[in-house]
C-alpha cells in the first residue's frame, strides 16, 4: 500500500463519513470533501495525527449557492491534501484556523476581501489585499461581481 492509500484508509477508518469523499488523485495528492460541521475535527486530526503540518494556503471558490474553501495542507515528505468544505452563501461564516496555523491570518483576510466570507475569531488587523478605500460590500471574486463604471 502506498503512503497516500495508507493515509486515505486511516482517514476513512477514523471518519466513516469520508467513505467515497476522500480520494487519491495521484502520487502525493489526496483530496477530501467534508461538511463544515465536521471540518474542524478532521482538520485538527490531519494536523495532529497524520503529519499535515504545513498550511500552504486557503483557496476560496464561489460555487453558486455556496462558498467553498479548499485548505491545502502538506506534509514534510511532499504529500498534500486538498480539504474542501462549503458554507451557504447566504450565511458565509467560517471560524479562523489561525490558532493552529499562524500563516492562515493573511489567507483568511483574503477570503474576507475577495469573496465576502466572514471569518470568526480573527485578530483585528489591516485588510488584505484590497485598498482601505475599497467598498466593504464589493467582493471581486464573487461570480456576479461586475466592475462599476467610474
Amino acid at each position: 500500500m502506498t503512503i497516500e492509500q495508507d493515509i486515505q484508509q486511516t482517514l476513512i477508518q477514523q471518519f466513516p463519513f469520508l467513505d467515497g469523499k476522500c480520494t487519491v488523485k495521484r502520487a502525493r495528492r489526496l483530496s477530501a470533501t467534508v461538511d463544515y460541521a465536521q471540518f474542524r475535527t478532521l482538520f485538527d486530526f490531519l494536523a495532529d495525527k497524520t503529519d499535515f503540518c504545513i498550511l500552504c494556503t486557503i483557496t476560496g471558490l464561489d460555487e453558486g449557492e455556496q462558498l467553498s474553501f479548499i485548505y491545502h495542507l502538506a506534509r514534510e515528505d511532499g504529500v498534500m491534501i486538498d480539504l474542501k468544505t462549503s458554507v451557504p452563501k447566504t450565511n458565509p461564516i467560517i471560524k479562523t484556523v489561525f490558532d493552529r496555523f499562524p500563516a492562515a491570518d493573511i489567507y483568511e483576510r483574503e477570503l474576507i476581501d475577495l469573496l465576502g466570507t466572514q471569518v470568526e475569531g480573527l485578530n483585528p488587523g489591516r485588510r488584505y489585499p484590497l485598498p482601505d478605500t475599497w467598498p466593504i460590500d464589493e467582493h471581486p471574486l464573487r461570480k456576479d461581481w461586475k466592475e462599476k463604471e467610474a
Binding site: R126, Y128, P129, P131
Partner: peptide, 8 residues
C-alpha cells in the same frame, strides 16, 4: 504590523 496589497 503590515499593510500589503499595493501591487494587487
Amino acid at each position: 504590523t503590515m499593510k500589503l496589497g499595493y501591487n494587487h
